[in-house]
Amino acid sequence: MLAMTLLLCVAMIGAALVAIRTDGLPVSILAAGLLSLLASVVFLVLASPDVAMTEAAIGSGLTTFLFFFVLGRVRSGEREGGEHD
């Protein structure tokens, strides 16, 4: 149980770092979606199924979709505003 949580946590932090540091925006959004998914698994480990379902449905499902939808609408913008600072 402990080992699994450790693994999940490390994965989550990895996903978060990828989401922040990566250049491509789609990759970043996907990483955030993955993070959400991992989070819902952690919620299961922390004995809160309700939250897990919500996180899965809304967190990874809808949020990621919203991002892709807006990204689609703003495709050209992504290239031009891509550089970090």
Binding site: I20, A32, D85
Partner: peptide, 21 residues
């Protein structure tokens, strides 16, 4: 640190997930 609006929003969702955890 990111200047792109969408990246900021992604970062905020990550922070929200963190809070929830």
């Amino acid at each position: 640190t990111n200047h792109n609006l969408l990246r900021m929003i992604v970062a905020f969702t990550i922070a929200d997930t963190g809070v929830n955890i």
